[in-house]
Write a protein that binds this DNA or RNA. Sequence first.
DNA 1: CCCATAATTCGATAATTATCGAAACGTGGG
DNA 2: CCCACGTTTCGATAATTATCGAATTATGGG
Lengths: 109, 109
Amino acid sequence: MEASFVIRALGALAQEHRLAAFRLLVQAGAEGIPAGVLAERLGIPPSSMSFHLTQLAHAGLVTQRRESRSIIYSADYSAMNGLMGYLTENCCAGEACAVPQAAAATTCC
Amino acid sequence: MEASFVIRALGALAQEHRLAAFRLLVQAGAEGIPAGVLAERLGIPPSSMSFHLTQLAHAGLVTQRRESRSIIYSADYSAMNGLMGYLTENCCAGEACAVPQAAAATTCC
DNA sequence: CCCATAATTCGATAATTATCGAAACGTGGG
DNA sequence: CCCACGTTTCGATAATTATCGAATTATGGG
């Protein structure tokens, strides 16, 4: 796991609109969400949305595919997985890295 | 878990020197590391180090205590824990949230 | 082919973040 | 009480990031 990837990924998520967009994409799953729909849901202009999506894509956290006129974005789970792995290995210490109960029951391990 | 905390925490870690400093602090454990030692290890001037440590502290990821003339910083594991919990719950999807094997054996669950 | 749609790129500007030397501030030793 | 040490604050500057309207690029329908 490259440190430069980690820094880009953290930076990509460290912004209100991008974190919100990424959460929507995670919820949406493989189906993904078109750029325009994301912009509408976040209440920001298309050009701003495009800027943020480029950041997320450059960080490797999302992928894009064209479907007719729309460009559909999807979360890249393996990248997020890699980020979590890095943080767990490098930024948590032994026992302190336990995952909260609520999360453990539903989404982890 | 507040989204604003998450964004500040992600932003705090999304910087080369701060990520490096935080990793050192995590390794150091409760004993912590004085600001000057961190600056020396990272090869940056004290004033720059101070700036970054302020960012980390403002994000709640580190705590500080004075010990004679030194100010000693320590990683706040519970904050990091909270961040990991938020990401697991909100930015991972079901099965995709598994933690890498290497990490799972030593630090998780 | 022309037009409408969906999105990105461009360009200009504002806002935030990073860097670092110099000055100021607590702390403890002599 | 003065001085050295460790650190932070200040101030100025450079670099990066965010915003958004206008122009541009693909796509497909009629």
